[in-house]
């Protein structure tokens, strides 16, 4: 019976939708994917992939402290996310240690603090679900918060889309024509921290890191236009979430891991077959036939 229903594509797609937890998982992952995919194109171009990694790990102690004090998670995450970046900048400036080393040093420190705090402070925060997420076991209040923060980030990024592009491309020109570069810098960091919070509650830190890096890299190989890059990045993030969740449902696999693997395969496909920038330059190949 199981095999029969699997063989028809229709039920392959609709069967999981009959479960409430699956509908929620699909919605949440798509939201997180949209937010992270949007951010990802900026991080890729700004050369901030490692920064995305750092911030998404560094928000962890903030979440725990916020929980202990009864504050919103996003506030704690924001403070620690931005704090980690400020600390990275400070250490880099005041010592001879190189930037990538400083980033690694700071975020592992913050993350360790988070782990120690979780073990000390009695809370309902489960370390495994923070790391790897539990998209299949999300509460209703989490859903509401995720929707709210995701919309907020997408709206902010949409409003300042062009300014952020300019900031990534040529911050000196932005400053020269009176655009507030300081504001844009912290806007990007704020959105990054918020994306980490959203992801952390539903899909886990590891997945957030992957979602912040891979979709942007995939899109970068596929287009020469910034707007297209954003769209491709968001779509590839959402599509890989859907593929990952369905595969994890049908084959009983870890959900977060399946999503990341789907993303990685999409990237590999672009890496090999991207029309202009792939290993096998398909554009040239087909041009040869004309």
């Amino acid at each position: 019976m199981e095999l029969c229903s699997f063989l028809t594509l229709n039920s392959f797609i609709t069967d999981p939708l009959t479960h409430n937890f699956m509908r929620k998982a699909l919605l949440m992952s798509s939201l997180v994917a949209a937010v992270c995919g949007f951010l990802s194109s900026y991080l890729t171009l700004k050369g901030w992939a490692l920064m995305g990694d750092a911030v998404s790990h560094s928000v962890m102690p903030g979440v725990v402290v916020a929980y202990a004090l009864g504050l919103p998670f996003s506030l704690g995450a924001f403070i620690f996310g931005v704090g980690s970046v400020a600390l990275i900048g400070f250490i880099k400036q005041k010592s001879r240690v190189k930037e990538d080393t400083v980033i690694g040093l700071v975020f592992t420190g913050f993350f360790a603090l988070g782990i120690v705090l979780v073990s000390k402070i009695k809370s309902n925060i489960d370390l495994h679900s923070i790391l790897f997420g539990s998209p299949l076991g999300i509460s209703l209040s989490d859903v509401k918060q995720t929707i709210f923060i995701s919309l907020l980030v997408v709206i902010l990024l949409s409003i300042f889309r062009k300014d952020l592009m300019l900031y990534c491309f040529d911050p000196r020109h932005a400053k020269t024509v009176g655009i507030n570069v300081f504001f844009l810098h912290y806007l990007l960091l704020t959105c990054l921290s918020l994306a980490a919070v959203v992801g952390l509650q539903s899909v886990g830190i590891i997945l957030v890191v992957a979602m912040l890096i891979t979709p942007g890299a995939t899109a970068y190989l596929l287009t020469d236009k910034f707007d297209n890059m954003t769209v491709i990045s968001v779509l590839s993030a959402i599509i890989s979430s859907l593929i990952g969740i369905y595969i994890s449902f049908w084959f009983d696999l870890e959900t977060g891991g399946s999503i990341v693997l789907a993303q990685t395969f999409i990237f590999l496909f672009a890496f090999l077959f991207a029309p202009r920038y792939g290993i096998f330059k398909l554009k040239k190949f087909f041009a040869g036939y004309k």
Binding site: L45, L166, F169, R172, T176, V177, G178, M229
Partner: peptide, 30 residues
């Protein structure tokens, strides 16, 4: 918008996915 800065070729990311039109339009952003 009194001052315009024309950077060195090495000072910009030439692989940035952006067209001539969009770069020149950035002169009007302010």
């Amino acid at each position: 918008q009194t001052i315009a800065y024309v950077p060195q070729n090495e000072g910009i990311d030439s692989q940035f996915p952006i067209s001539v039109w969009d770069v020149v339009m950035m002169g009007r952003y302010g």
